[in-house]
Simulated assay, not measured.
Amino acid sequence: MRLKIPQFLLALVIVGGLMLGGCSGQQSASNNASPSSNATSAATEASTKTTTEASSVSQNTNSESIPGMKDLPRLEGKATVVMTVKGSPITIEVDGTNAPYTAGNFVDLVQRGVYDGLSFHRVVRQPQPFVAQGGDPKSKDPKTPAQLLGTGGFVDPKTGTERSIPLEIKPKGAQQPVYSKTITEAPVLTHKLGAVAMARSQQPDSASSQFYFALADLAFLDGNYAVFGNVTQGMDVVNKIQQGDRIDSAKVTQGAENLKNGGK
Results as ranks from 00 to 15, higher is better:
residue 55 S to F: 11
residue 56 S to C: 04
residue 56 S to E: 13
residue 56 S to W: 00
residue 57 V to G: 03
residue 58 S to F: 05
residue 58 S to I: 03
residue 58 S to G: 02
residue 58 S to H: 08
residue 59 Q to W: 11
residue 59 Q to L: 10
residue 60 N to Q: 12
residue 60 N to A: 14
residue 60 N to V: 09
residue 61 T to E: 05
residue 61 T to Y: 09
residue 62 N to A: 01
residue 62 N to P: 01
residue 62 N to F: 07
residue 63 S to F: 03
residue 64 E to A: 15
residue 64 E to D: 14
residue 64 E to N: 11
residue 65 S to L: 08
residue 65 S to I: 02
residue 66 I to G: 06
residue 67 P to V: 06
residue 67 P to T: 06
residue 68 G to T: 15
residue 68 G to S: 12
residue 69 M to S: 12
residue 70 K to E: 15
residue 72 L to K: 11
residue 72 L to Q: 13
residue 73 P to E: 01
residue 73 P to G: 02
residue 73 P to S: 07
residue 74 R to L: 11
residue 74 R to I: 02
residue 75 L to G: 00
residue 75 L to A: 09
residue 76 E to T: 05
residue 76 E to S: 13
residue 77 G to N: 08
residue 77 G to K: 03
residue 77 G to F: 12
residue 78 K to G: 02
residue 78 K to R: 06
residue 78 K to Y: 07
residue 79 A to V: 03
residue 79 A to S: 14
residue 79 A to F: 02
residue 80 T to M: 11
residue 81 V to L: 10
residue 81 V to N: 02
residue 81 V to A: 05
residue 82 V to Q: 05
residue 82 V to T: 10
residue 83 M to V: 11
residue 83 M to F: 09
residue 83 M to Q: 14
residue 84 T to Q: 12
residue 84 T to E: 15
residue 84 T to W: 12
residue 85 V to L: 05
residue 85 V to E: 07
residue 85 V to N: 01
residue 86 K to Q: 13
residue 86 K to M: 11
residue 87 G to R: 09
residue 88 S to F: 12
residue 88 S to N: 14
residue 89 P to W: 08
residue 89 P to L: 06
residue 90 I to S: 01
residue 90 I to C: 09
residue 90 I to Q: 03
residue 91 T to E: 09
residue 93 E to A: 13
residue 93 E to D: 14
residue 94 V to M: 02
residue 95 D to V: 00
residue 96 G to V: 05
residue 97 T to Y: 07
residue 97 T to H: 02
residue 97 T to S: 11
residue 97 T to P: 07
residue 98 N to D: 14
residue 98 N to G: 05
residue 99 A to T: 06
residue 99 A to C: 08
residue 100 P to I: 04
residue 100 P to C: 04
residue 102 T to I: 02
residue 102 T to N: 10
residue 102 T to K: 04
residue 103 A to P: 09
residue 103 A to G: 00
residue 103 A to C: 14
residue 103 A to M: 03
residue 104 G to T: 01
residue 104 G to P: 05
residue 106 F to K: 01
residue 106 F to Y: 09
residue 106 F to R: 01
residue 107 V to F: 02
residue 108 D to S: 12
residue 108 D to N: 15
residue 111 Q to A: 10
residue 111 Q to F: 03
residue 113 G to V: 12
residue 113 G to I: 12
residue 114 V to N: 06
residue 114 V to W: 03
residue 114 V to Y: 04
residue 115 Y to F: 15
residue 116 D to S: 14
residue 116 D to L: 08
residue 116 D to G: 08
residue 117 G to H: 08
residue 117 G to E: 10
residue 117 G to K: 07
residue 118 L to Y: 08
